[in-house]
């Protein structure tokens, strides 16, 4: 049986037709591609995207800067007397992150001791591209606090 089957296989290209059958079956199935930018793929809850900072929650412990493996968080703080309560409090002068080197590892978020965290990477934004070379490479404190989560690329094109 096997010799006949092998002969038929070779003449009638049955193994190649099995492969073609697989592709034909897949041709009529639902496609898995996402038509970006009309459809946007939603990342998961824990997705490590662009970070954001909340200065009110931050206690200026600099643990995030210490934990960063590539040392790209730059923190300067000073003490000022709060007029309302009369106590000394820490204020942030500088909290900059060098985005061109950031690898979005999340160690700064893990190090942050406040609850909820003062620096967090789960802003679910992965669209960090821009049209000029120097923006979005080095993000300072104001940008971090007001980072626009979903820049609309489609609107910009229309404009």
């Amino acid at each position: 049986m096997s010799a006949v089957k092998r002969f038929l296989d070779r003449i009638m290209l049955l193994d190649l037709f099995t492969g073609l059958g697989v592709t034909a079956k897949n041709m009529f199935k639902k496609k898995h591609t996402v038509q970006y930018p009309e459809e946007r793929w939603e990342p998961a809850d824990r997705f490590r995207g662009m970070f954001r900072l909340d200065e009110d929650r931050c206690i200026k412990c600099t643990l995030c800067a210490r934990d960063c493996p590539i040392d790209i968080i730059y923190i300067d703080w000073h003490s000022e007397k709060n007029e309302v309560t009369g106590k000394k409090q820490k204020l942030l002068t500088r909290f900059d992150i060098d985005v061109q080197r950031c690898m979005f590892c999340g160690l700064c978020e893990e190090a942050c001791p406040t609850e909820p965290k003062s620096i967090w990477l789960t802003s679910k934004s992965y669209e960090l591209a821009s049209y000029d070379r120097w923006s979005n490479l080095y993000v300072d404190m104001d940008d971090l606090m007001d980072w626009k989560i979903r820049p609309d690329y489609t609107d910009e094109e229309i404009r």
Binding site: P43, A44, D45, R46, R48, F104, G106, L121, T122
Partner: peptide
């Protein structure tokens, strides 16, 4: 599955 677990 990885993304749901660790974010990347």
């Amino acid at each position: 599955l990885f993304e749901q677990y660790c974010g990347a």
